[in-house]
Each structure stands twice: as C-alpha cells, then as structure tokens.
Design a binder for these strands. Structure first.
Lengths: 339, 339
DNA sequence: TTGTAAGCGTTATCAC
DNA sequence: GTGATAACGCTTACAA
C-alpha cells in the first residue's frame, strides 16, 4: 500500500500564505475576506486537498458515519433495504459503514463491536442474536426485531399484512386457506404475519390451517405436505399465504410440478414485495409489500433525532398488496408492454 | 444526538493507575507485564472502552476502511458483489464504506470525493462516468470498466462468455442464433460478450443476427422485433443469447406471451448467473455465470497489494455455464427436492 | 518494562 | 477578520 501522503490544511495554509485557522474557516463557511478565501481555495485546488473528516471528528466527536449491520446484501430484501438506507443517509450528509453478518449470531456481536471502534454516530441493525450486547453510548435503531427495551425498532405492519393477505385471498375467490411459513429459531416482528392472518380468518369465519416449519429443515417438508393434500390433482385448499416471497415462489414451483394450476386452482400470496432484478415493475409473486423505502427513511430519521423526549419503541409502517401473477386479479406486465 | 462521550485511553490509564503508553501497549500487543496487562484489561472492561480507530489512523495514516462505490445494491448482481467484497474485506481485517451512485455520473464523482475525505485506504468502484477523476493518492481498482490507464480493472471473461453461450446453444440443438442486448451509452468490458458470441458463430459457420438497443428505449423494441420474426407461431430463430439475465427473463416472458415455447421452440441463455432470492440453488434463467466471488476476492487482494512492481491493467476471470430452465438440458430443481 | 512527551490534521478559543 | 495555540485520542520514540 504505497499511499502517497495527501496534503493537509497546513500545506494549504503555507501555499496560500495564510494561517491555519483561516484555512479552517474557509472550509467551515466561517466569514473570511473574499481575497483570502479565493487564495485558499486556489491553493487547495492546486494541491488537490481534501479535508480529513476523522481529524475533524476528533475535535467535534461526530464522524457523520452510520453503521448498517445486516445479514447480507445478497437477499433482495436486504439489498433493497441497504440501498434505501444508504440513500436516506446520503440525503442527510451521512455515509454508511456496511457490516455483513451472514446470519451468524457471533458475527453480529463482532460487527457491533467493530463499528463501535470506528466511532460511528449511530447503528442501524437487522439482527437475530437474542443476546446481542449493544454499546450504550451509541444511538441504535433496529429493524424487524426489538433488541433492547430502549432502542426503537422499525418494521412493516406485519400483523395487518397477515390480515390483508387473508382478506385478499378471500376477495379473489379462495375459500379454504393455508398459511405456510418457514420460521427462524428466533422470534421477531415477522411472526405477527401469522397471527394477523389467523385472526382475520377467525373473525370472518373462513376455514384455514397453519403450517410452520423450522428454517433448518429446508423446503422438502412442504412438498410432502402439498402431496398429502392433493387427491387426483385436486388440492383440498385454494388459497395460500406464505410468510415470505421466497417461500411463495418455491410453493409455486412445487404446485406446477404437481400439476396444480396457479392461480387457476390455487392462489398464492407471499410477503415482502420482492422485485425481480430489483426492478419495481417486475414483481415476483403476488405479495404483501413491505414499504422498504419508508422503513429506511424512518430508521434513519429516528436514529438521527435521538434525544427527543420520548422515543417510540416500535414503529410499524403500512403494507400494501400487489398482484404478481399468482392471484386471479389482472397482473399487468408493464415491463413488457409499456416501457 | 445526545451521544454520551465514550471513555478514552486516558480514562483507562487513570482507572488502572498506569500510564497512557502502557495502555496503548496493551492494545497493540506490545509486551507488558502480566500484572499491568490484567489491570488495564480490567479497567477497560469496567469502563466499556473501545479503541478509537480514527485517532489511531491519524498517527498511522491507515484507516483499515475501503470504499466500495457501486450503482446500487438493489440489483442482484450488485447485491451479490457487495456481499462478497464485504466478506473479502472483513476476512482481511478491513471494513467497508458503501457509496451508492444510482448510475448518476455526477454522483459517481461526488462519491469518489466523499470517500476520499474519509481517508479510506483504497477504493473499489463500478462506475460508468467516462470522465471520472480519480484521487491519485488513493489505491483504486475498478470492476467491469477500465477507468484509468494505471488502475487495475477486474471483470469476468466477457469475450469467452459470449463464445460459450453460442457454443452451448449450438450443442443443445439451436441452429439459427440471435444476440439481443440492451446497451448503456458507455462502453465497457461487457460489450465483449457480443464480440465473443459473434466470433464463435463466424468461426463455426453458424448463422446468427445481432440486435443492440440503447438502454434508454426500454424493452418495447424487443417485442416488435420478436413479433416481426414469428410467422404462424414459428419463429425464424431457435436460440437466443441475451447480454444480461434480466433481458433474458424479459424475452422469456415475451415469448410465452406470444405463444412460443421455451425451451421447446427457442432456447435462451442470459449472462450474469443471477439467483432468485440470492439463493445459489435457484437460477433464474440458463446463463453464463460471472464468478462473483472470485471477482470480489481478486479486486480486494489486488487493491491491498498495491505497490508491487507491475500491476495488471485488466484481469478477466473465467465464467461458467449453468442450466436454468430456458435450455433443453435438464435443470434439477434441487431447491425443491433436495433440501 | 514503564512513563513522558511530541505529533498526527483538525477545530475552537483566544488575543490582535 | 486573522493568526497563534491548546486540545481531541492515539502511537511512538526516547528517557527513566
């Protein structure tokens, strides 16, 4: 790493023939006589000077860097979230330190520690480790799981989303519903998708069943369940709500493989609102869409406004339903025809 | 932002009743008597001390932070790349500052400048701005586009990938090939996909045609082209190579809409190796897969070994073909059956 | 081995 | 308005 030492304020001051303080003033918008200001700016340009934000941070104890700790940017939901959080931060003059945990609880803890050493101004985290130790001195906001009684948590309105899924399936003609989910060991906000779904079914007297498979077992169990419920090509259900779009997609493939038509015989609704190739015009399955953009904005603005009288502990943002080809409403293939 | 000031080495020194230098030595693995060492570590734990890496960097002029400048983590290829680069960096004790440009040339320039202010130890960038000004003092590695005559560029072997696509289509029975691409204004390594494809076709005397549409026009032109080439449900081509998986997927949908069977009548191969939901077991279409992981590792290790005698200016990594349901080789739905 | 002190690139507080 | 100078948290000679 043969890094050439970059010029400092001192160099600029010498070049411009002014004092250090004056250079600092120029770069901080403090009033400086036009003549001096110009000389400083010229010298800075000539030397290719860029301010050292960390030296500044040493004095101001603000780095303007926020850490985002997340399982991985390879899953489209996380990729989207990362993107929006990054944008929300950039809009406010903050940069993002990205720490990827790969769902490893120990890594989550290590990441929290690492980013603390970088003296970030705050942390936004999407973690699963139930014993996560937070740094009390750093503002913290979590997503989808309440990490501490004092740290705000931002999530989509999972409960309403579950209700909405059931209601939509019913409105579109399904009468015998199924809830399928692949569940992590650790509980969190997403668990409420199920409760919302079930509560709507009960309140509306719509028959349903729920199946929850631990996420260690893979998808195989679902295939067996589906097979057992299909007699002569006729399933004993006609509407499925899956707790993620990924599961919905897998179920879709399985049903096709088993000769069941979707959405003809069975309608499927997922949760997340995943877009193919990150393109909002290309939904993957019919889904309850998380308001990713709003979640990102909310997480960031909540984090940055720490210190207001009373912080909320949980903020749920409204979800929306979107057709994506696995339900019997018209899915417009806008990306094919309209662009 | 009511950030509680976190303890410093001075605080730890006072608490432990030793000198500043001793505390520093403990945290840098310099030999310190066991008794003192323990006292320091105890004091540090008691106060919840974490080192300030930037204050350290001020002395050592190394931040152990690398910037990754990319268009956005919402597209799965970028999401994957971000993930692998992050991992490669973490493995080597580096952290990632993520800067998202959203394909805006001006943002690319701003991001380069911003991360320079953060005194990163290096920059990895995937950019499109042909006039991008680099900071000479910061090690730089680009991906998919050569930004400067001196900065190394890492990409997949696009040319061979194009050849491989043509060869595979032929091997699997296609005899009348089509190359479809959606091309950005700015040229880069990916352009070579086309040249490789065409060169193979010429060398093997396989008839082909190429269609290149500017990326400002959307997908609509492709629909017209396909329609014009289909008479009575019979297309005048039977194999398509698309320059991205996204385009391949769109073409697949269009052909289905037009009543053409894939892979029965027409086979399609894309480029990228996109996985659905980031799951390597779920290919999206048959594709020439970029070795994302290796590209990330190579970019990182090249960046960190700057200063060796002669740096390569272009490093191309080998691609592989993977069946994904749009070709007539057997696609195993492993994610359905085997997990 | 341990302590002392200078200095890294800034900002902020003074006099001028 | 401008220029010294101390201080931020740390590393690193150098002295003890």
């Amino acid at each position: 790493m043969n890094r050439i030492k970059s010029p400092t304020m001192k160099d600029v001051a010498r070049e411009a023939g002014v004092s250090l303080g004056t250079v600092s003033n120029v770069f901080n918008g403090v009033s400086v006589s036009p003549a001096y200001k110009e000389r400083v700016e010229e010298a800075a340009k000539k030397l290719g000077y860029t301010i050292n934000r960390y030296a500044r941070g040493l004095k101001t104890s603000e780095t303007h860097v926020i850490a985002f700790v997340c399982p991985g940017t390879d899953h489209p939901f996380f990729g989207d979230l990362t993107n929006y959080i990054n944008k929300a931060l950039a809009d406010r003059g903050y940069r993002m330190l990205l720490a990827v945990t790969q769902f490893i609880p120990d890594m989550e803890q290590r990441c929290i520690r690492l980013v603390s050493e970088n003296k970030v101004d705050g942390i936004i985290a999407l973690t699963y480790n139930p014993e996560l130790q937070l740094e009390e001195s750093i503002p913290f906001v979590s997503i989808d799981r309440q990490c501490s009684p004092t740290a705000p948590c931002v999530s989509s309105d999972n409960y309403s989303g579950g209700q909405l899924a059931a209601q939509k399936l019913y409105e579109l003609g399904s009468r015998q519903l199924l809830f399928l989910s692949i569940a992590p060991k650790i509980s969190g906000e997403p668990d409420k998708r199920r409760y919302g779904f079930e509560s709507w079914c009960r309140a509306s007297h719509v028959p349903f069943e729920s199946v929850v498979i631990p996420d260690t077992d893979g998808f195989r169990p679902f295939l067996n369940i589906l097979k057992a419920r299909i007699r002569d090509g006729k399933p004993d259900f006609d509407g499925i709500f899956c707790n993620t779009d990924k599961l919905a997609y897998v179920i879709l493939r399985m049903l096709k493989e088993l000769g069941v038509s979707v959405p003809g015989q069975v309608q499927i609704i997922g949760y997340d609102g995943i877009n193919m190739f990150g393109d909002p015009a290309m939904p993957c399955v019919s889904s309850i869409c998380q308001p990713v953009r709003e979640m990102a904005e909310t997480a960031v603005s909540t984090l940055l406004s720490r210190g207001r009288p009373s912080m909320p502990t949980l903020i749920c943002l409204p979800v929306t339903y979107r057709a994506g080809g696995t339900t019997r409403d018209r899915e417009e293939l806008a990306y094919i025809y309209e662009r």
